[in-house]
Amino acid sequence: MEDLFVIGGKTLKSRFFLGTGKFESKEAMRQAIIRSGAQVVTVALRRIDLEQTEENILSFIPEEIVLMVNTSGARNAQEAIRIARIAREAGYGNWVKIEVINDSRYLLPDNQETIKATEVLSAEGFVVLPYMHPDLYAAKALAKAGAAAIMPLGSLIGSNQGLKMKTLIEVLIEEIEEIPIIVDAGIGRPSHAAEAMEMGADAVLVNTAVAAAKDPVLMACAFAGGVEAGRMAFLAGPGHVRTTASASSPLTGFLFNE
């Protein structure tokens, strides 16, 4: 049986989402999308030339790919809402990744403003995927506000540091059952992506680690493979990590006349 998952009414096979920034060339980006089998990509509205006077980034994204416009540059809920509406009016679908960042040094998301934007946009019929700091209360509020999934950060954007937020993301995976969890930001190696999937994340979004690799196309494939392996391991049910060898039972052995 195929392992599919659904977001915003779309049934997806690939759990590897790709960001489109920082690529050396638009052609490399296109190849990375095609070869990795990614089905969802995110593009910043700020980078789309709506008047189409220059070579347009969108013409390098294959038609069957789900476009998730992001609100990069928004500093509060109001601005994120305006950007999302511009994107929809311009005909870029109704999937929006909300990024509300009011911190140019670390680029950390503002959960409170993100929740406000999610409430408004999901009421307007958008499929809302908010980028967030992995906080349980915020995650619950986002689910209640109508988010189609939540996207907690693994570590600081662009840092390649991996799952520094591991414990908190595990809490979200354990507690948030109503919507998928997509780990976004900071994933630097395919092994990080595999680890997130083994933990039970529903998908992983990567940008920098692919775009800034020496061979971005090959790296995109490596990530897709890592995501798939991690997902299979999760489904297979990995054994618990034990601190002692399982043969010895110093505490309970007496119950078995050992």
Binding site: E24, R46, R47, E79, R82
Partner: peptide, 16 residues
Amino acid sequence: MSKGYDPVVTDWRNIV
């Protein structure tokens, strides 16, 4: 482009 950079001409859209 010949040096491997990505020239970005559009990087913001005024949003009122």
